[in-house]
Design a protein around this nucleic acid. Structure first.
Ligand SMILES: [Mn+2]
Ligand SMILES: [Mn+2]
Ligand SMILES: [Zn+2]
Ligand SMILES: [Zn+2]
Lengths: 147, 147
DNA sequence: TCCTTATTGATAATGATTATCATAATCATG
DNA sequence: CATGATTATGATAATCATTATCAATAAGGA
């Protein structure tokens, strides 16, 4: 399963003299089997379902590695622990979060992206990514609130 | 000094039965005397210069209070501790950060703000603030790099 | 001034992440 | 496929930022 991501990881490891291990395979399968934004402990739980011997430190280390390899990406950094999401074949997007119920909408807005490029140009910066999080109340929570 | 901010704080405290204390005055003066983005320990240091008896826990508590009172606002949330910036009479702005030297440019871009409003409307959300951080390389660091 | 209530500072506790280290696994090489 | 240099692992301790606890103190309305 997940042939392609596995190949990405193997290439990444080989290029820098690192090793493919059982733990890394397990964490990869666990991570890819989860959707949305997951915390290290979510991944640890899923990984231990496949192999109870996996250590927490290994998951921390491995997810950092996956992020560097382009397989994972850090999502919103709220209080309460880093969140990861899939990065391989998952295009960049931003997040719209409900401050009441926590619901998260992922979106891409070309107008925003364009305007950001203009800001980079205005200040002579070279772009290397951005983080945009919109906070607000979702339709349901807005409704509840106005009653 | 800082009559106006002090008045804001006093009104805020009175409205909810809280008390104006020496420690709160000291932290306020310390915070307002600093510029840019400051960490709790920066503020603690400045506060202890005015009164060595100030406790760290008090600064954590007080800054949270100031944020609620509209005197402070949380700035970028990098690794390594919350950052605060002045909020009273300091309009909203976003940040453009150099990933090499750490330089921070504050900017406001009407096109981005407008486009964000459109996203809120598209998903039926009510807006309650956003956080945008652009990462990149500043002109100096870009130059160094290309050599 | 008195009294209720909020506040403080020291310290312990927590939660997330990283460092350490002895042991085990990987893999290029012979 | 055995060897050996090197990397990885998992348990555990250590950090770091933040919050909770609590006895002692200060504020401010009556
Ligand atoms: Mn996402
Ligand atoms: Mn700022
Ligand atoms: Zn909601
Ligand atoms: Zn720079």
């Amino acid at each position: 399963m997940h042939r392609e991501e596995r190949a990405v990881l193997e290439r990444y490891l080989k290029e820098r003299g690192l090793k493919m291990t059982a733990a890394r395979e397990t964490v990869l399968e666990a991570f890819l089997g989860l959707e949305t934004h997951v915390t290290v402990d979510d991944i640890l739980e899923a990984a231990r379902a496949l192999d109870p011997g996996i250590g927490q430190a290994t998951v921390f280390r491995t997810m950092k590695l996956f992020a560097d390899a382009g397989l994972a990406r850090e999502a919103c950094r709220d209080d309460g622990g880093r969140q990861y999401e899939h990065a391989w074949r998952h295009a960049h997007h931003d997040h719209l979060t409900c401050v009441d119920c926590g619901k998260v909408v992922e979106f891409v807005d070309p107008a925003i992206e364009k305007a950001q490029e203009a800001v980079y140009r205005r200040y002579g910066f070279t772009s290397s990514g951005h983080r945009l999080e919109l906070f607000g109340r979702c339709p349901d929570c807005s409704k509840k609130r106005s009653r």
